[in-house]
Amino acid sequence: MSISHVDDGQLHAYLDGELPQAEAWRLEAHLGECPACRGRLEEQRALIARAGELLALAAPPARDVPPFPSRPGDAQPPPPARWPARLPLAWAATVMLALAAGWYLRGEPPIAPAAPDRRAAAPHDTARTVPTRQAPESKTLAQQAPPAGRALPEADEAARSVAAAQRDQMISGSAVPNPQITPLDQAARAKPPPTPAAALAALAAPAAPLAVRWETIPWDTARVMLGVEPARIPNLPAVAKRRSAAERVVLVEQQLASGTVVRLHERPAAEGAPGMEVGAAAVQRVDVSERLARYVGNLRVEIEGALPADSLSKLLELVK
């Protein structure tokens, strides 16, 4: 291209209406006497149109402009109509509800598994004592505990904590042989590191009727089970699991960067919220002080592990 011709940049600027007036006049004068550049002008016009089309294909869906946020982090919670779509703001609110309500209810009433499994030791006992020694509180709890699968009613806070801790450790042990949950287990279980002895003890113990294995299922299967898109935190990989084909409860497991695990138990809307036993049967093995469980609508939300301060404050802001 000779100096006297116009370059593509000028043509684009011209077609974009961004060429300064004086340059535009010069360019138009040149185009008037140069068919080659006129041809290129049309090529570039088509190129700009095509690029615009492609970008439009990748445009976000048109949505209403939300209300103006008045302070940083003060994004408005979504209007009610947006809830069914399970949008992130709705999600933040959901998780926040779980936090607010669940924070002081942490160490929720434990499930009483069948008696043979009550051999789990107190949280800080060494693995060696697990199969043989029964912690004193354990007996009390076994007596207090209602039939398997039911929540412990109105136990005092201390007993609840101990029981929850026991349950956590016990389920932790029995979860060991399940290869599908292993990666999460290992990350989350860092605190009380599993020992071979504990694993053996768990294997030796009769299988806990409630600590059922959750098998990973394809997302499509989960969707079919629920009849709707399973709830999940957007932008975060999720794994769907179920206990059995007959039981229409879907567990969606997601892990935040911090290692915190969020589990969502969901049933088809017509069948109400999954029972407490569902949560307890899931793999759980984190220090109770860092575990929350709460119902939000028909959804059971469990959060394991610390929530980073910035997430917490962001969630708080969003809920306001």
């Binding site: 370059d7 593509d8 940049g9 000028q10 043509l11 684009h12 600027a13 974009d16 961004e18 060429l19 570039q44 190129l47 700009i48 095509r50 690029a51 492609l54 970008l55």
Partner: peptide, 13 residues
């Protein structure tokens, strides 16, 4: 800017 846009559009297409 025009030169960059010209290149970007062409490469995108």
């Amino acid at each position: 800017v025009g030169t960059t846009l010209a290149r970007a559009r062409r490469r995108l297409v």
